[in-house]
Design a protein around this nucleic acid. Structure first.
Lengths: 237, 237
DNA sequence: GCGTTAACGCAACGAGTGTTGCTTTAGGAT
DNA sequence: ATCCTAAAGCAACACTCGTTGCGTTAACGC
């Protein structure tokens, strides 16, 4: 057990700019902790991210970290929320194939880069553990898919893919195999894999497979929708 | 920290049939612990899987579990190895599209079924934590892809897909979006998603995108291959 | 400047996890 | 039936994590 049973939810977690006393020391502490969190995460990964370690590195007392962030998961959720705010350099190469390939390589970098890889990994693991991190990660990818959708929409405008193609679905198809390799099967994640996934997504989109699901007309045999996902793991207490 | 720094690696972990003293009590203890592990995993998930819980449920002493399995991760690795040994009912519907759809629905069930879902989830999380579990999960999916490859090979024999199509890659494309939804973005995993992923994989395979990578002819700009994957997380000690 | 009070630092506690040395049990061989 | 020894049980320990009550610091308003 890492940070279960927290009686009082961390106040505002991030102690954002709307806080009661945003000035001087508070801000200094917040920045120090945030920086230390990223550093620890990059160096040791999620498993070894400990409140004590972050506190020691940042020069802030353990208690303060627990009170403001509520534990290790809160630290990661905060880091994730900040990461989601940063814009994503969605490529524009002129063709859907080119855009998807560049997109897949962007993801590839995010998974294999010595600096970003551990962070990505840590975020995913944290999401599987804490509902707060899960929400943050969901929002993070929602924003990214939203930005990447532009590439598909351009392709649709050019007539490269049929109207009604679901941008998010295309993006997912292009990047999912990479995550699958990295997190599920533990297979190598390399440029060849990225390029093939992008090309496959492009072909499927072109074939008109990746259209938006019918808005209301429920799929006959379909389950009611989500089955066991967003509130990731449950607690007993 | 869950089960780090184990001075001596657990002897043979599973105490397989080749053990020194496979008879009576030892076997009884092993089965009781294994059963308890699966039950605890299904009920509480990976996060709440504690050696103490398994010991209590199985009626075996904590110390015994620690000595034979080395901790919670070892329990999961053992469970995974056993799961990998079980055959997978790969469908044979007569068409690649049908086979892939059935395959994707199989995976869908594995992710959303109240009994299997928590197990799948637990396995993936464990793999991200412990190298032993990572290896076990890798082998698990290697076996499954191996079995599923038959469906693609049948399709190739029928001429549905070009020769040289990589079966594992087709299977991956068909199921990856589901895992992606479940573990990465936290989006709903339903039959519509499964069917679309299968159809997309089928279309890509038909288009000749998912061919086996050139055996030796290194992809020019390609990285040396694997980058930061199989030995999942490192320890400091 | 000066007072108020939110936020931080400190020390100690409680709980749970993993470890270790020793004793006891029972499988397998003589 | 008896002995030998691998494996399981037992008790106590050490360590880390998260929590709590209280004293101290320093932003912010006047």
């Amino acid at each position: 057990m890492r940070s279960d049973r927290h009686p009082r939810a961390a106040p505002v977690t991030g102690a954002g700019p709307g806080s009661v006393r945003p000035g001087g020391r508070t801000a200094r502490v917040r920045d120090a902790v945030r920086e230390a969190t990223l550093a620890e995460l990059s160096e040791h990964g999620y498993r070894e991210l400990t409140v004590e370690g972050v506190a020691a590195r940042s020069g802030v007392h353990r208690t303060t970290v627990y009170r403001r962030w509520g534990g290790a998961d809160g630290l990661i959720a905060d880091a994730l929320a900040r990461a989601a705010a940063e814009p994503w350099p969605v490529p524009d190469t002129g063709t859907l194939a080119g855009d998807l390939r560049a997109l897949a390589r962007l993801v590839l970098t995010g998974l294999t880069d010595p600096a970003q890889g551990p962070l990505t990994r840590a975020f995913v693991l944290a999401a599987a553990h804490s509902p707060a991190a899960a929400r943050a990660l969901h929002d993070f990818y929602a924003r990214r898919h939203e930005q990447a959708a532009a590439a598909v929409e351009r392709a649709a405008a050019r007539g490269e893919v049929p109207a009604g193609t679901d941008p998010a679905e295309v993006v997912r198809a292009a990047v999912a195999p990479l995550y699958h390799r990295a997190f599920i099967t533990g297979e190598p994640v390399d440029e060849a894999a990225a390029d093939r996934a992008a090309a496959a997504a492009c072909a499927a989109a072109r074939a008109g497979i990746l259209t938006a699901p019918p808005p209301q007309a429920g799929a006959p045999g379909g389950a009611g929708g989500r089955a066991a996902d967003p509130p990731r793991s449950e607690r007993r207490s």
